[in-house]
């Protein structure tokens, strides 16, 4: 547990010292929200959620790529793969929640007659999905350029697809849109339960994928045998 927490702490420390990154992490959702603010309130909330998702995924992608050289030596130093990926994910979740708090307060101040608990749940789902999603891309694509382009493609799909279409349900952040609809338009509880279920399934699938990729990349190689110390 100590190893996992140490990785989480160092991930947070590293990201917290990148002031430019932090600023952009806040700027991205804010820009999305500002652009849609004059339209229907639901549009601005959905844009805000997408901005948070994109910001946290990007941070996760770059944090994963930056740690690529370090992780093998940490593995040799006694860490197991799950300490490394779960620790990093934990750090990113905490960061994502910290980024979300001011936007939640912004929503509370700026809007009326919303289900604010639903907005909080939607933001939580965004952060929950975004961290492992960015990590999967960072782990699968070793170069940041390719990873960023893939992330851009997925988020553009998310924005452009009709949320009612079956294809939209395959996008990672569909859950936040469903929950936001429940929170803003006061629709029936099915939206909330579908959204929460989608977020839980997608998060679980992404964590399993991250575990698989890290497990393969940081595995004990068959050619290396350990003899007892004489």
């Amino acid at each position: 547990m100590n190893r996992l927490v140490t990785v989480a702490e160092m991930t947070l420390r590293e990201l917290a010292r990148r002031r430019g990154v932090l600023l952009l992490l806040l700027l991205m959702p804010l820009t999305f929200w500002l652009i849609r603010r004059d339209s229907h309130v639901g549009q601005s909330v959905r844009a805000l959620l997408l901005g948070i998702s994109w910001a946290v995924s990007t941070a996760a992608l770059f944090a994963t790529s930056a740690a690529r050289e370090l992780e093998p030596r940490l593995r040799l130093a006694g860490y197991r793969p799950h300490h490394l990926y779960l620790g990093r994910m934990l750090g990113l979740w905490v960061l994502g929640l910290a980024v979300s708090v001011p936007f939640f307060l912004l929503t509370v101040v700026d809007t009326t007659n919303l289900r604010y608990g639903g907005i909080a749940v939607a933001m939580l789902c965004c952060v929950l999905v975004a961290a492992p999603f960015g990590m999967v891309i960072g782990a699968l694509l070793p170069r940041e350029m390719e990873g960023t382009l893939l992330l851009l493609t997925v988020v553009a799909m998310q924005m452009l697809l009709d949320p009612a279409s079956s294809g939209a349900k395959l996008t990672p952040f569909w859950s936040s849109r469903e929950i936001a609809t429940w929170a803003v338009d006061h629709t029936d509880g099915g939206y909330l339960s579908r959204g929460v279920l989608h977020a839980a399934v997608v998060t679980a699938l992404l964590i399993v994928t991250v575990a698989g990729v890290f497990g393969v990349r940081l595995r004990r190689r068959r050619h290396l045998h350990h003899a007892p110390l004489v």
Binding site: M10, E14, A66, E69, L70, H223, A227, V230
Partner: peptide, 21 residues
Amino acid sequence: EVTVSGRLGYCPQQGGTVDFL
């Protein structure tokens, strides 16, 4: 094959440190 007795330490040629720590 490689057989190692005891704990391994490795220092890479480059990388292996964290810029912001």
